[in-house]
Design a protein around this nucleic acid. Sequence first.
DNA 1: TACTATTTTCGAAATGGCCTGAAATAGTAT
DNA 2: ATACTATTTCAGGCCATTTCGAAAATAGTA
Lengths: 174, 174
Amino acid sequence: MLLHLTMELAEGKQKFIESWGRLGSEWGVNRTMAQVHALLLIAPEPLTTEEVMEQLNISRGNANMTLRDLINWGLVEKQHKPGERKEYFFAEKDIWTVARQVARERKKRELDPMLKVLNELSAVEGDQNDKEFAAFNKSITDIHKLARNSDKMMETMLKADESWFWGSILKIFK
Amino acid sequence: MLLHLTMELAEGKQKFIESWGRLGSEWGVNRTMAQVHALLLIAPEPLTTEEVMEQLNISRGNANMTLRDLINWGLVEKQHKPGERKEYFFAEKDIWTVARQVARERKKRELDPMLKVLNELSAVEGDQNDKEFAAFNKSITDIHKLARNSDKMMETMLKADESWFWGSILKIFK
DNA sequence: TACTATTTTCGAAATGGCCTGAAATAGTAT
DNA sequence: ATACTATTTCAGGCCATTTCGAAAATAGTA
């Protein structure tokens, strides 16, 4: 009997959806959302809500909400086929665009609010001879600096195109 | 009546702990863990379990587990004071070291396993004329490339010291 | 060895996030 | 209008994760 040294396509798809789902859930994107995204990423054609429901075994309500969320994240779009009433969904396939889009959302949800708080906390005044204040102030200042640097880096990444970005980065990092 | 234009220290601490907690929970670190970390970050002296419990209003069990987790993440260390039996805990204060430590953990938990899966999935064979296979293969290949680049970047960052890292990065990104 | 201070463990309870299913709404053709 | 299909909403239930609290284990001391 012939052993399968390589994976079947169907098995591969399954594995990818599962892994992408797990990865997503460690990233603040919930598992189902990441799985639907994975499914659409590897689909050659747009899919209907119905197909998403079947392939992932999720309810209509869930599929609908999840697809809406993905659209809000800018990762998925609707498409209408002429003569049909059903909506079709497809994912942005350029993975660099996907990465930037995710970075953009996360910046908006995490980094920006944190910067706002750090600005406020930087304004807290006190006596440097007070150990409590000195320790607080130093931490806030340092974190603020790191956050601002991250912000600048993000901003640039969001504007850059893939080849330029990795070209510059990897040149330094080799 | 005089309005407070700047925040009180106590209020600032509170706000920082809260924000750091929220940020943490969007990062796969649970809220309590991030809050304990925040508390220790701004504390001028090491704290006991007891003090952590009081200041954050959490149970002994929770405090104990959380501190252990933080130690496992390499963010907190134990200290013994001579003549005392109690254990004191303090956080790594160098924020760049903290950032690298977090990056190291996340790489281990997320990027490395994903790279492993992508290697397997890259080995799936098929006919490029089969639309299903072609779409799958292209996505996997692209993601694999992105993941490998991220991996290289991480590796370098983990070795670099702060000034070198931001010096090089911000030079490009300005 | 007994006593006390401290830490660790772990089952149970609480919390919060996710998903379902069914009803409401919207859209289209006859 | 009416019937039919597709989409959206949301209250309620479910499940995983987090937290509590008290008991057990451990470590230090006399």
